[in-house]
Design a binder for these strands. Structure first.
Lengths: 248, 248
DNA sequence: AGGAAACCTTGACGCAGATCAAACGCGACC
DNA sequence: GGTCGCGTTTGATCTGCGTCAAGGTTTCCT
């Protein structure tokens, strides 16, 4: 039950400097070597756009470090974030030429890219890669659908809680203070980016963050440093899609 | 640019009685034959639940006729539809045992099913199937993300327009009256199901339908028979994600 | 035909969140 | 130090949609 908008195991490749959270058991040395041959790295500064929606996209790849967002924009300027790319997440779509969304680096970003054509031909030759990619895509689909529930049916406070849960869970290994059952992390998003993700305005996000702090649900030091209760740890049985349950 | 929550080309199989909207060019007779060997049909009545979220799911398959919905429900009863399954759409997830959503037949429904285990082993042996499935899943992902924009940023009126557009486009070949640039079809959803899809209440859906009718944007005969302007035909160049543009 | 159960429409009212507006904190740069 | 710009907070007000409630239609059952 992937509760996370971008919780997908990465494609493994030879010498990427990230610690992959999951490894594809089926990959053998040959495939890794061949992936290494067609890959290269790109770096972006915070705020830079990686790809514009509609642009020709000649690579696929995954995030090595930093954070990027996928957003859609309407003609009148309303925007909705449709995905959050954290380290090890995959971007791009074998078989499609144009990008479907804007991809923007919200922090400094390093991506491990594969040129699309050779990647595609390799996919045709090595079934494992297509199967791995299918698994990852299905996880993303689950995550997108879970987010539809958040967008369609949750209150502002619940939306914030859902987002903080996701980010906290992804960063858990880095910043966990296990003794206290709390997760501590730095928000990698501005209030505006949070609002774009949650289908809210930045003012509402700010107000609800203040409210959660006032109510003692979360701790805020400065604007970005957050402490949230770790419910995956404290009450693990209930399972399901209660997003922490930390609302009143 | 798939503008449609469930616009995916089907997996081909030998003798399904549906007219597949797209055919997998790579499938050869062998594969079709093998698919035929492990498949069977199931029928459901309107209102029946195909699978409950969390249940063990021992098959995958696609819709032959009728309409089904994928919905998620929170503990307190709030529900959000996360997918609409029209004829030729695929359900199920090779590699996962439990169903992630409730699947409910909203009309009488015929499904063409494949037992999951043999389907999976076949997928391992025939790469084309995994690749076809990947394409379909990527289309679904695009559709889900487009729906996130609808849920997060559109007004009630726009949401209704988006939904009617999608259904009209899927049914276009059936009910098109090309001379007049209009699409005519019968709504296969109750007001409540529409509300669940759009993140609204059924009252709001009803009011907005009445308003669109009053404003002359759509025609309603009875509660279900609808005529909408066909903007994909009238103003095709602008393209993009203007959902018909029939507001104001 | 009568009655019940779905399904749909319409009205009155209230509230969550949007909008408009002002001001604060903080780092960067002169 | 001053001031510019950006991100953020907070307040006042407005409004779209939810909520509650009543009544209408259609279909189906006895």
């Amino acid at each position: 039950m992937p509760n996370d908008l971008s919780l997908t195991a990465p494609l493994t490749c030879g010498d990427c400097p990230i610690k992959h959270r999951a490894v594809c058991a089926r990959c053998d040395a040959d495939e890794l070597h061949r992936l290494d041959e067609i890959k290269y790295y790109r770096t972006f500064e915070a705020g830079q756009t990686v790809i514009w929606s509609g642009d020709k996209m000649d690579f696929v790849g995954s995030v090595v470090s930093g954070i990027a967002t996928l957003t859609q924009t309407m003609e009148d300027g309303r925007t909705q974030m449709v995905g959050l790319l954290l380290p090890s997440d995959f971007v791009g779509r074998p078989g499609r030429d144009g990008a479907a969304y804007d991809v923007v680096a919200t922090t400094d970003l390093v991506m491990c890219c594969f040129r699309k054509k050779p990647f595609e031909t390799m996919m045709l030759e090595t079934p494992h890669i297509a199967q791995r990619l299918l698994e990852m895509t299905l996880d993303e689909l689950d995550a997108a659908r879970e987010w539809m529930l958040v967008l369609g049916r949750k209150t502002a406070r619940e939306k914030i809680a859902s987002l903080l849960s996701i980010i906290a869970r992804r960063n858990a290994t880095l910043d966990l203070k296990p003794a206290e059952g709390q997760l501590v992390f730095d928000l990698p998003l501005t209030r505006e980016a949070m609002a774009d993700y949650l289908g809210l305005t930045l003012e509402t996000v700010s107000r609800q963050m203040s409210a959660l702090k006032r109510d003692g649900v979360i701790l805020l030091e400065g604007k970005r440093h957050v402490t949230v209760p770790d419910f995956t740890r404290l009450q693990d049985e209930a399972g399901d899609d209660n997003d922490g349950g930390w609302l009143s």
